[in-house]
């Protein structure tokens, strides 16, 4: 994954603006901004790096001796997910059991300046939904009984795909009151609206938080193709079939020997 030069320029500009006039979203003593609020997916999209900048306004709250802690939680569009489990049925292994979960974010990234268990106690983390685990509801949508193995599998598989991640290294303090975080969006990042919550901690308690957001969208050609496919589906189908016949015919012209 790489950050585009344009993205880096945008990020720097954003940081400059932020530091100069403390713009961006204001939540009491925390000022934050994103390097971009729109991630366009071009035909060569393989992921994007988004920067989060934040300033803790001096004097708003006394700075803890150990320094501030920051947790950035990024959540992608939510949707229903079915988790299936293969079980043996005679000699066969078949999908015999399943659980359905609703409102599961398609993308979760929890970034912090140090490990979450050092920032806050377990009860506080659960309460404030800090980390991947508290963000995935354990309740299933179906009538089937709750089975923690399904929820665990959901988390494990999504982490393997790079869609759920926790990192204690991607928030960096530039100065005691200014921090920067990097959101790494993979190429498989689902389209839609993303929420970014920046929470400021002091001595294991949340002082304040600020909410931001960005949107991942298809651009020009990709969006056009998708729109046509959905709105004029018959035309799209006929056009695709015609292209197929044309390509086949052209190839036979190219390869004709006699």
């Amino acid at each position: 994954m790489r950050a585009s030069p344009a993205g880096a320029t945008r990020a720097l500009t954003a940081a400059a603006v932020l530091l100069a006039c403390a713009a961006g979203t204001r939540a009491q003593s925390l000022v934050t901004t994103l390097s971009t609020d729109l991630v366009p997916i071009l035909s060569n999209f393989t992921g994007e790096r988004i920067a989060v900048f934040g300033v803790v306004e001096p004097g708003a709250a006394p700075r803890p001796k150990a320094g501030w802690d920051v947790v950035v939680t990024v959540r992608g569009p939510r949707g229903a997910v079915t988790v299936r489990r293969k079980e043996s049925w005679g000699p066969l292994w078949l999908n015999l059991d399943q659980r359905r979960y609703i409102a599961i974010p398609a993308f979760i990234s929890v970034l912090s300046n140090r490990p979450l268990d050092l920032i806050a106690q377990a009860e506080v983390r659960d309460d404030l939904r800090l980390g991947i685990e508290p963000l995935i509801p354990s309740q299933t949508a179906a009538r089937a009984a709750n089975d923690p193995r399904f929820r665990e599998a959901l988390q494990r598989l999504r982490e393997k795909q790079g869609l759920f991640s926790e990192s204690a290294e991607q928030v960096r303090f530039i100065s005691p009151n200014v921090f920067q975080a990097q959101i790494d969006l993979p190429g498989t990042a689902p389209l839609g609206n993303y929420d970014v919550e920046v929470a400021l901690f002091s001595d294991g308690a949340r002082v304040t938080k600020s909410n931001l957001g960005f949107r991942v969208t298809k651009t020009a050609a990709e969006q056009w193709v998708a729109d046509v496919a959905h709105q004029n589906s018959i035309l799209y189908g006929i056009a695709t079939a015609l292209i197929a016949v044309l390509v086949g015919w052209l190839a036979s012209l190219v390869f004709r020997r006699d």
């Binding site: 949707g79 988790v83 299936r84 000699p91 292994w93 999908n95 999504r158």
Partner: peptide, 20 residues
């Protein structure tokens, strides 16, 4: 082989609907 051998990962995840 897919149905006759014990799968290394018995679980699979399928998104069924997404709100954008």
């Amino acid at each position: 082989a897919d149905v006759l051998t014990r799968p290394p990962e018995p679980f699979s995840v399928t998104p069924t609907e997404t709100v954008r």
